[in-house]
Design a binder for these strands. Structure first.
Lengths: 236, 236
DNA sequence: CAGTGGTCTAGACCACCGA
DNA sequence: CGGTGGTCTAGACCACTGG
């Protein structure tokens, strides 16, 4: 299966993976040392090191300087859950993305915003609410608060051609983000804006992005449960 | 020459990250070539290569053989969504995990199971339904179908001391998984088992795990929306 | 064509672990 | 102490890209 021209380090990785997935090497077993693999494959140690280092990064094995490499206890099957720009996502599916801006305003920071954005109580904060459509169907309501210090021109942006995510990325390079994913019912206002019933469960992503010293933005993204799901897969 | 405080390749990575997060290098800008960085830092090319290669793996830059390295258009906000064992998860939070088995039986494969598990129509399939409690509060209903070819002893396992996830990990090494996350209402039976209202939205994870040639198991995990959320964070 | 990244070598020194 | 992995060098050849 491995192509003849596949790099040596890939062949070593494939070999080790095969030993693990076939059960020849069980969880907890020690993997041959770099010196041993070097002999077995007739390559330099750097090449073996790269192969095993990458397997460790993938979580298949754990390494201990001085003691050795062992097959990881749990082959953690995991996958990158990426939080992406909605426009990109829709276009990638071959559909058309449109957007309707419902609010674009300045509000005064209350206690919750002080906590979330790190601004002073009563300080001005930008607020936008918009609905994103995929081929005309509402799939996301985006309720966002923006720290003016991170994006002073936010209110004058053209959100017909640029999404808030795109705009914020351009003027406040991302350094950190936190998010949570939960299921809940939409508020009456949200249900109306999305054109769904009040009792339709939604996937709600709350995302807080940090750019350098500022918390740039906090977004509440509401997805109708019937129209959206996150998917992912993973293979060894 | 390299400072003893941190490896040279880490210092190079830190430098490049700083240029990106501070906005000196914008998305789409080309990053200095390996030869240039090699000169700048006075290290060998292998060291520079490792640093930039890892940044590419992290998604901060994209590399094109022959043309060069550019700052990635979107800094993916992403996090590992791991397939984890619920018992581990609860214990890690310092709480007590208990489990009530509602069903443990053999069923006959219908069309949906044929599709999901790759068994023949009418073939026997193991089926288990259990509720997991965190400090006595129901947080997950696990409805699982298991391919007997992957875990012949499934029905005789003691699920008071071992979770299905643990059991399957041990006897069917994982090679592949697919999942989807969505928001939906529980079925009447599920609501009753979890002790929640029929109208309480739930986070539903459907997960299909593959071990070698077999699809080992398909699980439907129902989390009461009020009691569970997925969280993640990301930092450059 | 010259420049880029992808891979690889045959050494090397170091920090760490277990006996 | 010998064995392990972590890092690094100063070369090298290759495949690919661009002008």
């Amino acid at each position: 299966m491995p192509t003849r021209s596949s790099p040596a380090f890939e062949q070593i990785k494939t070999f080790v993976k095969a030993q693990i997935t076939s059960g020849v090497w069980q969880a907890g077993d020690t993997v041959p040392s770099e010196a041993a693999l070097q002999q077995q494959f007739g390559v330099s140690r750097m090449t073996v090191n790269r192969a095993v280092k990458e397997l460790a990064a993938e979580g298949l094995v754990t390494r201990q300087r001085g003691s050795g490499t062992v097959v990881a206890q749990w082959h953690r099957i995991s996958s990158m859950l990426a939080v992406r720009d909605i426009h990109e996502e829709v276009v990638e599916r071959g559909h058309t993305h449109t957007c309707r801006v419902l609010r674009l305003e300045v509000v005064v920071a209350d206690a919750a915003l002080v906590q979330a954005l790190g601004v002073r109580l009563g300080a001005p904060v930008f607020h936008s609410v918009m609905v994103h459509f995929e081929d005309g169907v509402a799939i996301q309501l985006e309720d966002r608060h923006v720290n003016p210090a991170a994006a002073p021109g936010y209110l004058t942006a053209n959100f017909q051609t640029t999404t808030p995510t795109q705009y914020l990325f351009a003027c406040a390079p991302l350094t950190e983000a936190r998010y949570s994913i939960e299921a809940a019912l939409p508020s009456a206002q949200e249900a109306k804006s999305l054109g769904i019933g009040r009792n339709e469960p939604c996937l709600i992503i709350t995302r807080c992005t940090v750019s350098g010293a500022h918390v740039a933005s906090q977004a509440r993204l509401v997805y109708p449960g019937m129209r959206y799901s996150l998917r992912g897969n993973f293979a060894l």
